Amino acid sequence: MYLITKNIYALLIATATFTANYASADQTTIDKIELASQQNNVAQLTQIANTAKGYDAALVNYRLAIAHNIIGERDKAITLLDSAQMILTDDKLSEDETEVNALLAQVYGYRISIKPITGMYYGIKSSNALASASESDETNPRVHLIKGIIAYNTPNIFGGSKQQALKSLNTSINHYQNDDNLGYQWGQAEALVWRGLTHLALNDVQSALDDWQASLDIAPNYTWPQMLISNNQG
Rank of each mutant, 00 (worst) to 15 (best):
E99A: 04
M86V: 11
L209D: 03
I30Q: 11
T19C: 11
A77T: 05
Q188I: 02
Y122T: 08
K115M: 09
M227T: 15
L35E: 11
Q164D: 15
D210Q: 15
K162Y: 10
S134Y: 15
A36I: 08
I124N: 12
D96Y: 06
T89E: 10
K115G: 00
E135H: 11
M86Y: 07
L166N: 10
V193H: 04
L209Q: 12
F158N: 09
Q206Y: 05
T98Q: 03
Y222Q: 03
I8F: 09
G109Y: 03
S24P: 00
I173S: 01
R111Q: 07
Q233A: 09
A208M: 10
K53Q: 14
L182G: 01
Q206E: 14
T19N: 12
H199Q: 07
T89W: 02
A102M: 02
W186C: 00
L59E: 10
A49C: 05
Q38M: 09
A57S: 14
H199G: 03
L80D: 04
A23L: 06
V193Y: 06
Y9C: 09
G119K: 11
V42S: 11
T5A: 13
I218H: 00
S168F: 09
L166I: 06
L130W: 01
S113H: 02
A43T: 15
Q38Y: 11
A36D: 06
Q206C: 02
Q163W: 07
A65G: 08
L200T: 06
Q85L: 09
S134R: 14
Q177W: 02
E190L: 11
S134M: 13
D56M: 05
I4M: 12
W194L: 10
N181F: 05
D90Y: 04
I112H: 01
N170M: 01
A25D: 02
S136H: 13
T98C: 10
V143K: 03
I117V: 14
I124P: 00
Y184K: 09
D204K: 15
A67V: 08
Y110I: 05
L130P: 00
D56I: 07
V60K: 04
